[in-house]
Amino acid sequence: MSKETLDIQTNSGRGYWRSLDDLAQSSEFQARLEREFPSEAAELRDPVTRRSFLKLMGASMALSTLAGCQFAIKQPQEVIVPYVRQPEQVIPGRSLYYATSMTVQGFGIGLLAESHEGRPTKVEGNPDHGASLGGSDAWIQASILTMYDPDRSQQVLNAGKPSTWADAAAALAAAAKSAGNGIRILSEPNASPSLGAAIAALTSTYAGTKWVQYDPISGDNAVDGATQALGAATNVVYAFN
């Protein structure tokens, strides 16, 4: 990973930026800014003024219309780049569907992800999965965007700074030693067996470790009510017919 990417990932907070370089606050970018726009350097670096906003919008509109044109009379020469070793299931031009799942309010919902030559493009419910029966909702539909989100976590972070697994393990061991009552892990509700197993392993290594699950919008009260009414922890499913 390049230095820029690292810097971008660790840049937290609500700063506004106009390019990846800008975001990375690289010294070359600062130098270029001052060299090319001496009179406007301050304005460009500043929160967007109305004047520069209109200017940027105008310029980008003009450029995007130009980019849509082809000045060449002939189509530009394109290339076909086949695989070196074609993966067995891949048929170029046809989509592949992978069964996957997504955590919604603590429970996994079975989904099918459509993929084109290795790139996921669409998520739908898995008809064979009891929790979705082929259906989905707005969050599931939108979840495909997280795949391409530049903010998607790609490495170990410590208080927003890039770190390594070795450092994380060392920090955990140190924390377990210094904390009186053991470590606390805070997460969203999650019923994943593999995450559960990982945390169970951690708990058995560091005695006193507790896993706290918290959801700001949870269905716990409804489940408590159902327990009182029906005698067992129950999810109520209404039949409107």
Partner: peptide
């Protein structure tokens, strides 16, 4: 016979 693309063979 099965796809929109004819497919150019891989090096393999």
């Amino acid at each position: 016979e099965i796809s929109s693309n004819a497919n150019i063979p891989p090096t393999e």
